[in-house]
Structures are given as structure tokens and as C-alpha cells.
Write a protein that binds this DNA or RNA. Sequence first.
DNA 1: GGGTTTTTGGACTTGTGGGTCCATTTTCGG
DNA 2: CCGAAAATGGACCCACAAGTCCAAAAACCC
Lengths: 216, 216
Amino acid sequence: MTVPEGQTKEQLPPTRKGAATRRRIVEGAAREIREAGVFALRLEDVMARTATSKSQLFHYFPGGKDDLLLAVARLEAARVLDDQQPELGALTSPQAWWRWRDKVLARYRAQGVSCPLHVALSQLGTATGAGRAVAAELLAQWQRRLAAGIRHLQRDGENIAAGLDADPDAGLDADREAAALLAGIQGGVLILMTTGSADHLEAALDSGLARLGLAP
Amino acid sequence: MTVPEGQTKEQLPPTRKGAATRRRIVEGAAREIREAGVFALRLEDVMARTATSKSQLFHYFPGGKDDLLLAVARLEAARVLDDQQPELGALTSPQAWWRWRDKVLARYRAQGVSCPLHVALSQLGTATGAGRAVAAELLAQWQRRLAAGIRHLQRDGENIAAGLDADPDAGLDADREAAALLAGIQGGVLILMTTGSADHLEAALDSGLARLGLAP
DNA sequence: GGGTTTTTGGACTTGTGGGTCCATTTTCGG
DNA sequence: CCGAAAATGGACCCACAAGTCCAAAAACCC
């Protein structure tokens, strides 16, 4: 109802060749954005890089540029979680948590000042709603896994410190803490994007883990 | 050196009338953005709303749209800190911290899904560097005040709990904790912008304050 | 009050890059 | 191997808002 135009449907091409072309276009656009930024992104560039014609672009992305951008956003969103695996999927020990922390930090340090997902989303004109949905879904999944990891920590803490009461994170609401940690990460990345320094991201991660009772 | 074109200089009009016009334009553009978003922002709209002509726009903002956007960003950046006063300037007691927390939360809840500053910055084409500078300066000031507040808390803690060692925040690096807290806020706002829910912002704030030893 | 600078009006240019169309070729199912 | 559906090439369009210009009016300074 709130999506009057735009082509939000994932439309998978029926033929093998078509699917390949579509993939090529999306990946090419993604690389283009990573290298040159979204501002510079013209359909022509994508055409040149992926050796396709305009008719193909509009064939696979009837909604035009927004549609393509949305596909790129989906790709990049998937990559965000993938890049944190396998740790994010199995935050079952303090060691796993720290490995995860290091991976996140390294990933965003390497990515540097330009976040393809954030920037793709920000350029979405008409299909803003759909873009938000992609981002929201990513955040939800991310948070879910963090919360699972926190609960794991809490269970282990209970077993080990049964009888004692020194466990720092026993009384915490796992979802809420996951939300706070996720917010810290997002903010850290945002600040990294504007200042070029990952200090805030690192501080947020370390502060968050400390709060969960994980000492460096 | 890295600013080849663009008009980064603040150029204050020499005459009274000129200054007024310039202000009118910036404020009109800011309102326009708040109401309709940046995507919708056309110079014509600004002209209509502020009763100015194109020559005026380019007279006061030789760099064109980017230049204007930058001015809006500066305005909104100033507003961000102002809206947190007077608490942010005097985080000298737990009560002040909590009042500040409430104010931040209320401010961003009211602002809702669209952050004028963030969105103005994101639309800056050429003058991206200058935009980053504005954002970086805002973050730096913000963090400085948080850090000052944390140090205050630590000093008070020492006095009160002299001899004891139960003070939770005594050993913390104030700047680092301020950085983490700021990251949480930024991330919370970012998430608010994409999901419409302020839960993350609230979680980040509460988690951050708890870490500073401030119980609700 | 006169000369200079600033401010303002508004018509005109521009060019760019997104979007449309149709003809041709290729793929694919049976 | 044939006919339908899908994929592709590339010419064309064109809206549209950013940016330019010059001349008239107002403000300022002494």
C-alpha cells in the first residue's frame, strides 16, 4: 500500500543466461560503488563495466536505478553477516566473542571510510521503504545472533559460578544488551565513515564486551 | 589542497539586508528538508518558500546546491548540541546525567525517522570533505562534553567512596568511555532512522550510563 | 546627494543521464 | 527442429533542475 510504484519483487530470470547477466550487473554495480562511490554511479558505468546494454538493465530492473540500488543493498547486506561468520553464528565462548570482535574491527577498518550498504541505501529515492526493510532485516538478524551469544554466556556463567553471585552479566536482559551492543557497532561504523578513525568502534566493542563480563 | 572547488568559506554578507536574506535562505532550506526530505529538495522550492530568486541563491552560495546544503548542515549541527543544553554542558551529578538522557531520547523520538543533519550530509556531492569536517567537529565537541561529565563523576566517586573500592567507574578511561557512549547514541539514532523505533537508542543510553555506575 | 557596491529579478542555456522503444538474436521446452 | 519466450543491441527522447547572465533597484558610505 505504501509502495505505489517501484519494483520490490525479486524477479529471478527464467533462463540460465538471464540469471547470470543479472548477477553480473548487480555485482558490477556493487564494485563500481565500492570503488567510486554512489554519487559517481551512472548507469552507463555499470553498462561499460558489465558489458551490457541499457535494455538489459531495464529488463532485469524494471524499476530503474532504484531497483538496481536495492539489489546492490541486498547483496551488501548479506555480505555484512557473512563476513562475521563463522564466529557470529557460534558465540559460545569468550574466545569466540573475542575472535568475533577482532573480525568486525578488521573488516570495517579495511572497508574504511565508505560503507557500500549505507551509501547505497542513502541514495535510494523512491524505494526508500524497501531499502529500510532490507536494513531492518539485517539489523534484526544481527541482533538475534548477538542475543543468542549473550544467553550462552549467561548459561555458562550460571554453571560455573553456581552459588556465587559475582557473575556480572547474570541479571541482564539479553535482547536489550544485544541492542545496545549493536547500536554501539553501528555508531562506531558511522563515525569511522565520517572521521576515518576506528577508535569509536573499538571503544564501543570493548565497552560492550566488558559489560558482558568479558575481560580482555 | 583537497578542496579543489566548492566554496567552503563562510562568507558573511556585508550589508544588513544581505545577511537577513542569507539567513532566510538557509533556514528555509532547512525547514524544507525537515518536511519533505533532501531528495525532494529543489532550488526552486527554496526560492518559493523564501521568496528569493535564483540569482540570490547563487549570490550567497556561489558553490550552488552543495554550498547551501553545507550551510544547512552547519545549522543543524549547531542545533544538535543546543538541544542538549543546559544538561550537556554541566553533567555534574547523576541527576543531571539522567535529565540529559531523557532529553536526548525525547529529542530523537520527536525527530523520528528523518535526521536532517545526516540526510543533508549524505546528499553532499562535491563538498563531501567539508561535510565530513562539520560532522567531525560536532562529534568532537559532543564527546568532549561527555568526557568532562564522566571525569566529574569519577572525581565525586573518589570523594564519596574514599577508602572503599566499590566505585564502578573509577578505573575507566574517560575519553574512551565517552567514545563508546557516543557511538551508542549515534548507532541508536541511525537505527531509529531506519526502523522507526527508539529502543536501541534507549538501550544504548541505559547500558552506557549503567557502565558509568549510574543506576536508574 | 552622488558614486560605489551590494542585492535582486528573471529570462535563458545546458547537458546529462535516466528512461523508452522496437528490431534482432538467442535460448529453451517439447 | 520449431515456435514461443526471453535476452540483447542501440538509437532516440526529453524532462528537468542546476547553473549563467545582464540589467535594474536598493543599500551603504562619505
